[in-house]
């Protein structure tokens, strides 16, 4: 450690207004991303992961608003950037790859056109140079026949291939931060590993800091150095990956880890299967979001004011009952 973080999120709070009231989508979220490190963000859908990602790019939808907090990128607050400044940062400094690579491409343009146009909007190079650069980066991504690939249309490639092209395009601009929002969720199992390997290679080769967002513990376990578990808009637990997986302290993290199936066979014990809806975040008080589903909860929990406490070195938990 000891390194200067590239991106620091401090006390981020995001509200989303809906027809039914204001949703407290993100609450008191703080984390740092360092060069060459992977920060993993785990949580179920609706836990606020995606909104957090969007705010890092200043791309929140109209209904959402950052109500508190700051996002420091190289010691400047992104939230104060003008649209013009932000456009320069987006892509070249902070890049994203998204869950569904199909929707990120315009179906009537070739891969080459996407690639070359992206390069030329950010770099002062000729078309020819851009083409050569594109070929070089596709080769680095282990994509076969890069020259032919440039002539193909998005629908001619599989989801896994497209995601790798996406990564190649993103990386050609050599960003210092890569935000990967569920990069493998829409892909086949065999392609998932491939993508993760490539992300791993990237951070080693280019020292890129990666924010890896996923609901899949497998993805996080493979790649992340530090992990934060999100639930109901809060980071409920944050620790280095081995600490978190070996000694989970928050009840939700424990439930999550107990649900791992891996390649073990189903045991005869059947967990009670009453479905619990995700917490209702509309006009919610500052109480523990996991209260309704928590097995350890008692009367003291509802009056407790939420705080992220450091229980061990680098191991932070937001729970009264953490053990």
């Amino acid at each position: 450690m000891g390194q200067q973080p590239i991106l620091t999120v401090n006390n981020l709070n995001i509200d989303v207004s809906t027809p039914y009231g204001v949703t407290r989508t993100v609450r008191d979220v703080s984390f740092k991303i360092e060069a060459g490190k992977v920060f993993g963000l785990v949580g179920e859908s609706g836990s606020g992961k995606t909104m957090t990602c969007m705010s890092l790019l200043n791309l929140l939808p109209d209904e959402a608003k950052v109500v508190k907090g700051s996002i420091q990128f190289r010691n400047k607050d992104i939230l104060n950037y003008s649209e013009e400044d932000m456009r320069k940062v987006r892509g070249s400094e902070i890049a994203t790859i998204m869950q569904n690579p199909m929707t990120a491409f315009n179906p009537v343009r070739t891969i080459g056109r996407h690639f070359i146009e992206t390069l030329r909007t950010h770099l002062p190079i000729t078309k020819h140079q851009a083409r050569e650069m594109a070929v070089a980066y596709l080769e680095k991504m282990d994509l076969p026949y890069p020259k032919n690939l440039l002539k193909q249309y998005p629908f001619q490639l599989s989801g896994g291939m497209l995601q790798r092209v996406m990564i190649a395009i993103t990386m050609s601009l050599n960003p210092s931060i890569l935000i990967a929002d569920e990069p493998t969720t829409a892909l086949d199992a065999t392609n998932q590993l491939q993508i993760l390997k490539q992300l791993n290679w990237l951070r080693k080769e280019y020292d890129t800091g990666i924010l890896l967002v996923s609901h899949d513990l497998g993805v996080i376990a493979q790649l992340a150095d530090e992990v934060a578990v999100m639930y109901g808009g809060y980071i409920v637990e944050k620790a280095p990956v081995f600490k978190l997986f070996n000694r989970p302290m928050h009840p939700y993290t424990r439930v999550l880890l107990e649900s791992r199936i891996g390649l073990t066979r189903r045991k005869t014990k059947i967990v009670k299967h009453i479905s619990v809806p995700p917490p209702n975040l509309i006009n919610r008080e500052n109480t523990c979001p996991f209260l309704e589903r928590c097995e350890d909860a008692d009367h003291t929990c509802s009056s407790y004011n939420l705080e992220l406490k450091e229980y061990e070195k680098d191991h932070l938990v937001r729970c009264l009952k953490s053990r």
Partner: peptide, 22 residues
């Protein structure tokens, strides 16, 4: 075999950093 080897086990250390090919 390829399907089996590409299973992402939800345990850190299984195939991460050290084991990853690069």
């Amino acid at each position: 075999k390829k399907l089996l080897s590409s299973v992402l086990l939800p345990y850190p250390g299984h195939g991460s950093d050290t084991k990853m090919i690069y």
